[in-house]
Amino acid sequence: MEELILTLKKQIIEVLNLEEMTPEEIETDAPLFGTGLGLDSIDALELIVLLEKEYGIRLANPAEGKDIFKSVATIAEYVHKNRTK
């Protein structure tokens, strides 16, 4: 799980162009949207692409993302349970 969390943090930094951030600076349980990293609706769509590309998880309904993308911890848990690659 620790390894998955670190990988996810690196992938999030890359796909969301969080240029000046390091994985250590992203708190695993901190909210990603709203406060936290201040991500927006396009970032949420970009995370949907990330799940499908890297882990073979397809979200039919983007509204599902709301619960999954709460924090890196919730993403890791969802990926762990649902990944197909």
């Binding site: 396009i42 692409v49 499908e52």
Partner: peptide, 9 residues
């Protein structure tokens, strides 16, 4: 192949 929405915009 799964294009990026942030590139498309």
């Amino acid at each position: 192949n799964l294009p990026s929405p942030s590139v498309f915009v």
